[in-house]
C-alpha cells in the first residue's frame, strides 16, 4: 500500500513541482517580480478546497463527465499559460517592458497545475480515510511521495538557478516543451475516457522496454506524458504541443527583431 501511495502522489507532485520550478526559474531569468507566487499559492489551496467541497457536483455535472472535463481544462489552461509566458518572456528578453500579463501567465500555469494535481491527491488520500488498516500506510506513502516530488522540484530550481542565464533559459524552454506536451497528452486521454475523442490504433508498442505500469513508466507519464502504445492523435498532439513552445518563442521574438532591423 505504501509503495502504491508513494508512486501515485509522487507522480502528481513531481509534475506540479517541476512546472513550478521551471516557472520560478523563468521568472528569475526574466527579472520578473516573484510577487505572483505569493498570490497564486493561496489561490491554488483555495482551488483545491473548492474542488473538495464541490466534488460531487463536479463529478455529476455534464452527464457525469464534469471531473474529466475540468481536469483536462486545467491541464490545457496550464499549457496555454506556459505558451503565453514564453511568448511574452521572449519579448522582455528582446528589450520590451515587463507586462502584467507575464505575471498572470506564471500564476495561471502554476495555479492550474497545482489545483489539478492537488485534487488528484485529495481524491486518493480521502478514499482511504475510512480504512483504518490502510490509512497509516497511505498517509505515510503520501508524505514520502510528496517529499520526494517537492525535493526534486527544489533541487531542479537550485540547479536552474546555478546555471548561466542563457543555459538556464534554454533548458527551461526544453522542460516547458516536454512537460507541456505531457499535459496535453494527459488531457487528451481524459477526453478519450469520456468519449470526446475516439481511440485510435496504436502506432507502436514499447511496453516490452518500459511498461506504463512500472514505476519509471508512471513517473515518465506524469512528467512527459509517456505512452507505451500511443494512438496517432496522441503522438501528433505530443509533437505539436512540443513544437508550439519554439513557435511561441519565435512569435515573441519576431516582431521586435523586425522593428530593430532598420536601425
Amino acid at each position: 500500500m505504501l509503495i502504491n501511495s508513494v508512486v501515485l502522489v509522487l507522480r502528481e507532485v513531481l509534475e506540479a513541482a517541476l512546472l513550478l520550478s521551471v516557472m520560478l526559474a523563468l521568472s528569475l531569468n526574466l527579472r520578473c517580480s516573484m510577487r505572483w507566487l505569493a498570490l497564486c499559492l493561496p489561490l491554488a489551496v483555495l482551488g483545491i478546497g473548492l474542488f473538495a467541497v464541490f466534488l460531487d457536483s463536479i463529478t455529476d455535472a455534464l452527464e457525469g463527465t464534469g471531473q474529466e472535463l475540468l481536469t483536462a481544462g486545467l491541464q490545457l489552461a496550464a499549457f496555454a499559460a506556459c505558451l503565453l509566458v514564453i511568448c511574452l518572456g521572449e519579448r522582455v528578453r528582446a528589450g520590451a517592458r515587463q507586462s502584467p500579463l507575464l505575471a498572470l501567465g506564471f500564476s495561471i500555469a502554476v495555479i492550474c497545475a497545482m489545483v489539478r494535481e492537488g485534487a488528484e491527491i485529495y481524491l486518493y488520500v480521502t478514499a482511504f480515510a475510512a480504512s483504518p488498516d490502510q490509512r497509516t500506510a497511505v498517509y505515510v506513502g503520501a508524505v514520502i511521495g510528496a517529499g520526494i516530488g517537492v525535493s526534486l522540484g527544489v533541487l531542479a530550481y537550485g540547479g536552474l538557478r546555478a546555471m548561466s542565464a542563457r543555459a538556464a533559459y534554454v533548458l527551461c524552454l526544453c522542460l516547458v516543451a516536454v512537460i507541456g506536451a505531457g499535459l496535453v497528452v494527459q488531457s487528451s486521454q481524459l477526453l478519450e475516457q469520456i468519449d470526446w475523442i475516439a481511440p485510435g490504433e496504436p502506432l507502436w508498442n514499447t511496453s516490452a522496454w518500459l511498461s506504463e505500469e512500472s514505476v519509471p513508466g508512471q513517473l515518465l507519464y506524469a512528467v512527459v506524458g509517456y505512452e507505451a502504445s500511443p494512438a496517432p492523435l496522441q503522438a501528433w498532439l505530443w509533437l505539436g504541443s512540443a513544437l508550439a513552445v519554439p513557435a511561441a518563442w519565435w512569435l515573441g521574438r519576431a516582431p521586435w527583431r523586425q522593428r530593430r532591423a532598420p536601425a
Binding site: I3, I144, G147, I148, S151, V154, L155, G158
Partner: peptide, 24 residues
C-alpha cells in the same frame, strides 16, 4: 534560506529514497 532549502531537499530526497529502499 537558500542553503537550508537545498540541503533539506537533498536530505529529504535521500532519506525518503533510503526509507523506501529499506521498506522494500
Amino acid at each position: 534560506t537558500y542553503l537550508v532549502a537545498m540541503l533539506m531537499a537533498a536530505f529529504t530526497l535521500v532519506t525518503f529514497l533510503a526509507a523506501l529502499n529499506g521498506y522494500l
